[in-house]
């Protein structure tokens, strides 16, 4: 593979270690009911080989973020500002032709619902080969076919070579999700954006598919952004976590840290809402009160304030939007966007 990976010769620079850098990204949906800023000026980096989780409720802007990274936001939505740097190049300044050389090659997408994520009238083989042939001009069809069969075998679909002729409706949900993974890893990308990859599957299948996925990305050193609302999957799969609320990343930290000590009240509420056997026995199941705010009419202050157990009604939280702040020592530091962050993290220490 002659990919343009930045050479890591010389001093180990932090810059070359970064696959994806998102800077001040803002994505809005302009509808007749108003303007919905689904992603509100978000910044973050993804290092090579990193497994990053992005967590949030539905409607928090996770999926819009995923599509923004790939440049696939469609009208009425559009990216209004910011940069998406993949391997150092800004995708937003690229034309459609250059983008089509990057998508599927340097980064790819795994989509939520395996039922609707494959074209129902094309064979599995055709759909895997499509991306291979697109990025390897001049490759013989028979070779692309062999590669497709190999990929299907890699994702542990039994009798891979024969199943290339099958259609999506002949596959189970779990098998289809494996096909999706095969399509995503076909050109060994540097980054895979996986939007709720296992949500539609039952728990056992979920674990199996996730195992296959993890094995493959680790063997190729592919970085993954895993978008989910399932904290169990995050704990199992991700090195770092970012929590998204109303289009903002309100907290980011290592998985270990965040589970040990959630910095943002929203993170804490999310963690508490995961049922635990000992609490369920006591009949106490926590859920985040209220609903996410409408993106078209965000509160003036902190967007979480109306639902916040810690800051609800506080004058500061109601009147001023918090800004992100680093807390903790730099090594396992975290970013929290909350007026009460330092106080909360101090208290716990």
């Amino acid at each position: 593979m002659n990919r343009s990976r930045p050479t890591s010769s010389g001093q180990p620079s932090a810059e070359t270690d970064i696959v994806l850098s998102v800077k001040n990204l803002r994505t809005e949906f302009h509808t007749s009911e108003g303007i919905f800023p689904a992603v509100r000026n978000v910044d973050f980096n993804v290092r090579r080989g990193m497994q990053l989780g992005i967590v949030g409720e539905s409607g928090s802007g996770k999926s819009a973020l995923a599509l923004s990274i790939l440049g696939l936001v469609r009208p009425p939505g559009r990216i209004v500002s910011g940069e998406v740097l993949l391997n150092g190049r800004d995708l937003r300044s690229m034309d459609e032709k250059s983008l089509s050389r990057v998508r599927g090659k340097e980064m790819s997408l795994i989509f939520q619902d395996p039922m609707t994520a494959l074209d129902p009238v094309k064979t599995i083989g055709t759909q895997i080969m499509e991306g291979i042939l697109h990025h390897n001009r001049g490759l013989a069809r028979s070779d692309a076919r062999k590669r497709a069969a190999q990929l299907l075998d890699d994702v542990e679909v039994p009798q891979a070579a024969q199943r290339l002729e099958s259609y999506p409706h002949q596959f189970s949900g779990g098998m289809r999700q494996r096909v999706m993974i095969a399509i995503a890893i076909a050109n060994e990308p540097d980054l895979i954006v996986a939007d709720e990859p296992t949500t539609a599957l039952d728990v056992t299948t979920q674990a199996q598919v996730l195992d296959v996925f993890e094995r493959l990305v680790q063997s190729t050193g592919t970085a993954v952004i895993l978008i989910t609302h399932n904290l169990g999957i995050v704990a199992e799969f991700c090195d770092e976590v970012q929590v998204m609320y109303a289009g903002r990343i309100v907290e980011s930290a290592s998985t270990k840290e965040i589970f040990r000590l959630p910095g943002h009240p929203y993170t804490e509420s999310l963690l508490k809402s995961v049922p635990r056997p000992e609490e369920a026995q006591r009949g106490k199941l926590f859920s985040v009160a209220g609903f996410p705010p409408s993106l078209a009419h965000l509160p003036r202050g902190c967007s979480f304030e109306p639902r916040c157990f810690a800051g609800k009604g506080l004058a500061l939280c109601r009147s001023e939007r918090p800004s992100p702040s680093w807390t903790g020592p730099n090594e396992n530091g975290r970013l929290v966007e909350c007026h009460l962050a330092s106080q909360r993290l101090e208290d716990d220490r």
Partner: peptide
């Protein structure tokens, strides 16, 4: 969603329409 998946492979808008959207 499958249209997005096709696009995420790098396939251009025209080919996405002619190969996938129109037949469906």
């Amino acid at each position: 969603p499958f249209i997005l998946v096709v696009r995420s492979k790098g396939i251009g808008l025209w080919k996405t329409f002619s190969r996938h959207a129109l037949p469906n």
